[in-house]
Design a protein around this nucleic acid. Structure first.
Lengths: 168, 168
DNA sequence: TCATATTTTCAATTATTTTTGAAAATACAG
DNA sequence: CTGTATTTTCAAAAATAATTGAAAATATGA
């Protein structure tokens, strides 16, 4: 895969931004590469283009496939696997938000619920105050969860226009 | 600061969740501590309660103050500084989103704009296709930026109720 | 089936981030 | 101003996370 200077710069920047978003650098670089590449790429091309090891390329491409941001693509007459990147930014955003919700919000909600359950019994004043705080957090997280779920199943134009109305 | 088992468990969980959200563990633990504590705390109390060093406590409390999730509080007759945690979850969410927008979205938008500017000159076919991709990304990020800005300046009950109504 | 191409795994290495703790800087009371 | 309490800084150490590369596993064509 031959890249122009601009493309190369884009991928490197996407990579360092990625670190700010809880992805590792290579994951974000590979994603950047797929964003600016029209054709399907093999693991070897990824390794070569980004100068990374086979293990690294394999693991991170697999993660991107798991997240639904890159797809496996069959290339006739080729034994190797090829991959092609999702280009629709709305879909990419939704996939990222899904992953984040699963690892940031869902476990938090589970934790608060569990803790509340085991705290409910105790009837000391301190405990009641604590349960009160847990309730507020739970209620809030539940509301956020619902909102995110809606967002994750919504389509782009609907979402933006809803927000436009909200803004007025 | 004496904590109940439940509170302690909450703080430890909040800490390990925090790692999943791009905060360091201590930052999230301190925040958890402030969430479940009504009274103002000094750096010494934080150090002692969480068993962390002075430097660590100081740096992370300062970060929380910068983010607007914890406030400095003056205690009469005390020379040390005391801090008290913001309890309003909506405000906390907005503050977190502001930080994230600043480090995740804003630099991305800046990068894409810069790159587009330096790419505009070249008129090869490849370059045009690349600029086309940059345009899509820019347009999307700009929309996301506007939406987030609206959210960051909106009021809680209004936000949830309007959003829920719209989603029916 | 066998030989080989391809992918996956994972222990060891390397890089990055966080934490410590003591020294330096600052703030304050007398 | 002086001495002490308090906060801040930051180099070194510790902890955590990412990456490599080669061996193992798997898939494929003949």
């Amino acid at each position: 895969m031959k890249l122009s200077d601009g493309q190369y710069k884009f991928i490197m920047s996407w990579g360092s931004l990625g670190s700010q978003w809880g992805m590792n650098k290579t994951l974000a670089q590979i994603h950047g590469l797929f964003l600016v590449t029209e054709e399907a790429l093999s693991t070897d091309e990824i390794m070569e283009t980004l100068k990374i090891s086979r293990g690294n390329a394999n693991m991170n491409v697999r993660t991107l496939v798991d997240w639904g941001m890159v797809y496996k693509e069959l290339v006739a007459g080729e034994r190797k696997e090829f991959f092609i990147g999702e280009k629709d930014m709305w879909l990419i955003l939704k996939r990222i938000m899904k992953v984040r919700k699963e690892r940031e919000l869902d476990p938090m909600l589970r934790m608060v619920k569990d803790l509340k359950a085991s705290e409910q019994n105790q009837k000391t004043e301190e405990s009641e105050q604590f349960v009160e705080r847990l309730n507020e957090i739970e209620q809030f997280a539940t509301q956020a969860d619902k909102t995110l779920s809606t967002l994750l199943s919504s389509d782009e134009s609907w979402f933006w226009s809803t927000f436009m109305k909200l803004m007025k």
